[in-house]
Design a protein around this nucleic acid. Structure first.
Lengths: 222, 222
DNA sequence: GGCTCCTAAGTGAGTACTTACTTACCGAAT
DNA sequence: ATTCGGTAAGTAAGTACTCACTTAGGAGCC
């Protein structure tokens, strides 16, 4: 495999596997920019530089192609695993019960990832709105685990007596809300950052501080 | 005009105005559930109980019909004005510089409104993803004003010496993030509330507390 | 009340084009 | 010579949109 990812000038002959991957990749881009019903098999074929028949040789229906994307994206997502498995500074912070570090690195990791794969985010939203099941699967297989993990951390720190009494899942909702909202602005609503122009690092720092002070035991009686 | 809103059994004759409104209403529902390209003029006509020709008598193109919806929704939104103009408890809280009251009532107002008009929210997201301009207009005409207002309030309270030094717009981003994330879960991803089942009142209370403690001057030096 | 007229609500059956998907066939490489 | 990547040219059903035409029902008259 000396050929680096699809060395094609369009129209070149490829192995079935390569072509399949290339069609898939092309389809991801189109589905993520125009949604399922806004994307035609013709456009996918054109963009991939093959005839429509080739698309249907590899994927028996349009729905099937969409399903393959969801599967691939889900696996890819699965292989990256959870941030607390792969992100070293985060693992370190967790071990040391460095609360700021934990929240900071979770936020930074999430925002960087979300904004690096805009296609995935758009696919997720389209899928949720159009009621395909990527969103649902991503939700049960990833998001709920995130709630468990962060919620668990908060509960632990409550037992340690450094965080005040509050439903840990509300804390997670608030925290993920900040992160997601920031990413959504940057990739969807306010790409030019007219409302707020800060780096993900700054955002992560501020969000971590807000949530930390927000749930700290130190109650500023007023 | 004794007839209350479209007193029709389907197939009855209506005035042009009533029929126009009815088609529009039907179209809002369909566009908000299936998006622009996922909704056909045929389905709209069927759902409204008229022939397709009637749809095109009232709206010269499908794009035109979509535009009319955006316009209507924008105006409707405009007439409700901003929460700080119409929500009495909020106005009261602002006057008294009751910080908790301010954040609590903004959050509650927003979440109730968002979850009451799911169609509008879905339309907004479809519009943003499909790159129509409702989202953009809503953004510049509403969201940016919200940033100005809440950001302004925070800045004022910083001058008063009760909130710590932090970019007020970051506070707004964090706070709106919590609110929006909660609504999105309730209307899109987690309708059954398996992750977190709390009332909007509880959520508003918790979010307000988190943001308040989060930006309070009272620094719990860890 | 009944009668006519006329506007405007409403339609059936189209048009030109696009959609997802199929079939019959080609030619390069193993 | 057979396999397999690839295509041209289909099909049937759908798409947005049009047009020639039909009818309901109110205004005005008797």
């Amino acid at each position: 495999m000396i050929k680096d990812l699809f060395n094609c000038e369009h129209g070149q002959r490829m192995t079935g596997d390569d072509r399949r991957k290339q069609i898939l990749q092309t389809a991801v881009h189109l589905f993520s920019t125009h949604g399922f019903s806004g994307t035609t098999t013709r456009k996918i074929a054109e963009a991939a530089g093959v005839s429509e028949a080739m698309v249907f040789k590899h994927f028996s229906t349009k729905e099937d192609l969409y399903g393959a994307i969801l599967h691939e994206k889900a696996c890819e997502e699965g292989s990256h695993r959870f941030p607390w498995d792969s992100n070293e500074p985060l693992k370190e912070a967790i071990k040391n019960k460095d609360d700021f570090g934990v929240f900071y690195h979770i936020a930074l990791h999430a925002m960087n990832k979300q904004q690096a794969d805009v296609g995935f985010m758009r696919l997720m939203f389209f899928s949720a709105l159009e009621d395909h099941d990527l969103a649902e699967r991503f939700f049960t297989e990833f998001v709920s685990k995130v709630y468990d993990f962060i919620g668990g951390y908060v509960a632990e720190r409550q037992k340690d007596g450094v965080m005040r009494e509050i439903n840990p899942r509300v804390v997670v909702r608030a925290f993920i809300g900040m992160i997601l909202h920031h990413s959504l602005n940057n990739i969807l609503w306010d790409k030019k950052q007219t409302l707020l122009k800060i780096t993900n690092e700054e955002a992560a720092k501020n969000f971590a501080e807000i949530i930390l002070h927000g749930v700290s035991i130190n109650d500023p009686a007023n």
